[in-house]
């Protein structure tokens, strides 16, 4: 878990002011065109990573989002340090760089006037890893959906567990799923949108148990890392292994939705939920 590492190209993209280089087809795209196209490559349709707030802007009705539990942030329970420094320093740097307190943003809002609770992960904060704070926020948002009897939608983007919090991170898998399990008791819909990338402990917990599992084109979704699998089985894996398309083929994703259609699709799906009220 936690094996997803940023490629070198990403850093170049950040430095470049005019051009964005597509992670997939390597084409140079005008930054403005890239942004106007919702960070989707106009050449190859690669769906690039976006921030949690960008996602919220694309999905929720304008002005409807009310953030909850914004102040939750890591506390370094293990006083963890590795060769490159301490977890506390990494958190500090990530908070500054991403302008976030944790790897997920949660709150209430509306999708085409349908009230929902959302949790949106942000890969920029420690690779979207599942820390104690992440698990807490995802559970609390589920509890909000439970108590207010609202549908719950989680957008995942994560390299997996957060090693710096050790077994506490692992336990968040059970904790978040316990929150999801409770929604069934009240017959509340739970949609999981697995965006690029959703791997390791997040794929093996709340991200994979949606009533409906949705993804975006080309998203990487997997439990074990490609390199680990190749070393284990001593074979090369097919090119499309662990892509959203591959998971549809294997029966784990209901549908792949273009980013520009995501809001409409979610609204259309929610319309099939016959609320008891």
């Amino acid at each position: 878990m936690g094996w997803f590492t940023k490629s070198k190209q990403d850093k170049r993209v950040i430095k470049d002011e005019i051009w964005t280089r597509c992670e997939s087809c390597k084409a140079h795209i005008f930054k403005e065109d890239w942004t106007n196209n919702l960070s989707v490559c106009p050449r190859c349709n690669f769906h690039g990573r976006i921030t949690a707030y960008e996602r919220i802007g694309q999905i929720l009705d304008s002005g409807s989002f009310k953030e909850i539990n914004q102040s939750i942030t890591p506390s370094d329970p293990l006083e963890f340090s590795d060769a490159k420094g301490s977890y506390a320093e990494k958190v500090k740097a990530s908070r500054k760089k991403a302008g976030l307190n944790e790897s997920v943003i949660t709150g209430t809002g509306q999708i085409k006037e349908i009230p929902v609770v959302v949790a949106v992960m942000d890969f920029r904060f420690l690779g979207g890893s599942l820390g104690s704070g992440t698990g807490e926020k995802i559970l609390r948002a589920a509890n909000t959906a439970y108590s207010q009897r609202l549908p719950y939608i989680v957008f995942s983007a994560s390299g997996g567990a957060r090693m710096h919090e050790g077994v506490l991170s692992l336990m968040q898998m059970a904790k978040t799923c316990a929150g999801i399990a409770r929604l069934d008791k009240r017959g509340l819909p739970y949609f999981s949108v697995l965006t690029h990338p959703t791997t390791g402990g997040v794929s093996a917990s709340y991200a994979m148990v949606g009533d409906i599992n949705i993804s975006e084109p080309g998203a990487l979704i997997g439990f074990a890392g490609r390199r680990v699998i190749e070393q284990t089985i001593k074979q090369k894996l097919p090119e499309n292994f662990q892509t959203a398309e591959y998971l549809v083929e294997k029966g784990f994703i209901d549908c792949i939705v273009q980013r520009k259609d995501m809001k409409n699709t979610l609204a259309a799906l929610l319309a099939y939920y016959q609320s008891k009220r």
Partner: peptide, 15 residues
């Protein structure tokens, strides 16, 4: 962490 496990949904089974 094998190919077959991944194909049959190791993540889904654990989740």
């Amino acid at each position: 962490p094998g190919r077959d496990g991944e194909e049959r949904g190791q993540h889904e089974a654990i989740a």
